[in-house]
Amino acid sequence: MNSFKDAEHLLRVALVFVAATIAFVLVRAALVPRSFGEYGHYRGNAITEMAAQPVVFAGHQVCEICHSDVAAIKSAGKHVSVNCEACHGALENHVNDPGTVQPPKLDTANLCIRCHQVNGARPASFPQIVADEHSAGLTCETCHQPHSPLPLIGAGAKP
């Protein structure tokens, strides 16, 4: 029996240990987000937070709902692979409020040469021009319809 006479000491240590374990569990539960470890060693809710970021480019599918006439012209021409917002810029604001938010007027002189100015690194099959020599100062849309640039058209034709 003598060997157990100090069992009370051990019990106290055990109690302290249990209390510390409970405190650890509580503090951990308070500090670690519940979704941590849902999919892996990270906060699972970060995925949904990321997905909630607002969209800025509306996407051509939305444009084509209202502007089906332009989409039809474009689909028959050389610019078929060029999505609306590639030239017109991000327009989710316009989609959300088409009445008041209007797309900005395009600076075609600079816009067209962004792609079509001659550059040695561009694929040789891609249509390229030397802007200064090409049009004698006329704007691009004098001859080209931007939504379907070939064949060449007369002055004033839109869109």
């Binding site: 480019f57 590639a86 792609c115």
Partner: peptide, 8 residues
């Protein structure tokens, strides 16, 4: 956005 804006 990059794919949406890529013209080619």
């Amino acid at each position: 956005a990059c794919c949406e804006a890529c013209p080619t």
